[in-house]
Design a protein around this nucleic acid. Sequence first.
DNA 1: GTAACTGCAAACCTTTTGCAGCTTG
DNA 2: CAAGCTGCAAAAGGTTTGCAGTTAC
Lengths: 142, 142
Amino acid sequence: MENLDNKVLFAKKGIKNTKQRNMTYNILMQENLPVTAELIFLKLKEADEKISLSTVYRILEVFISKGLVIKRNLSEDNMAVFEINNMEHKHHLICYCCKKMQVIKGCPLGAYEKILQEQTDYDISGHRLEIYGYCPDCKEKK
Amino acid sequence: MENLDNKVLFAKKGIKNTKQRNMTYNILMQENLPVTAELIFLKLKEADEKISLSTVYRILEVFISKGLVIKRNLSEDNMAVFEINNMEHKHHLICYCCKKMQVIKGCPLGAYEKILQEQTDYDISGHRLEIYGYCPDCKEKK
DNA sequence: GTAACTGCAAACCTTTTGCAGCTTG
DNA sequence: CAAGCTGCAAAAGGTTTGCAGTTAC
């Protein structure tokens, strides 16, 4: 599962192209949703990759520092989750029941940020929004 | 710093009125912003209260289960923060630089949630929003 | 060849738990 | 007095770090 794109990308960012980094990046791309370090670790094990959990954390740290990955903490539990930084502004819709997460494209907050900036005299540069509810499947079960 | 209101409140919720709970509740009221368990612990120590950190966590747990307190995790670091649940829908504006937090009253998402509900067929019941930027003081320093 | 990366084990930090003793209603 | 709190110390997650050995460029 060697990936030429990754090789080029890593070179551009000035980091070495190792098997572990390559695979970690592929998994993040495949998932395309915030995942825990643990999950990445397990997927790598599954794929018969020799890797340790601390390496996963170190790789993610490097990816974050190079702007390739974003780290966040979801509100419920206190585990960090990681996802590819594809520079796309987006939010997530999360099911209270099954914890499924789906991407919401578009953002309703552009105008609001401007208003808030005037009201508060802050220099507003970002926000974080998660929407919660029950997905169609879980909604029925209730 | 005995507080009669707390006594009545605790009685109504069916929990015992101890010095530690009383003081913890007072601190949360005074702060009126999300704080860590550690900070509550330190404030109690400062006030010469004999308390252990695990008791703080246990008290917060009880308060949460009775609906008196809300727990959340902020995006940056992985420590939980706790605040009084005054049933008011609100969000926070957080300074990237000095980490100061201020309450934003009002919410721009009411209409958006309805639209999203139709689009996604989810049963939407809540959201979580934090706005980030630089406060007037830190803005100048830059 | 050397600077950078990895695995392993141990440390760290926040949060939880078990238990014996103490307090509240 | 009994039920339920608390303090202490130890355990339990998730994450980070030190170090010796390995790998990529």
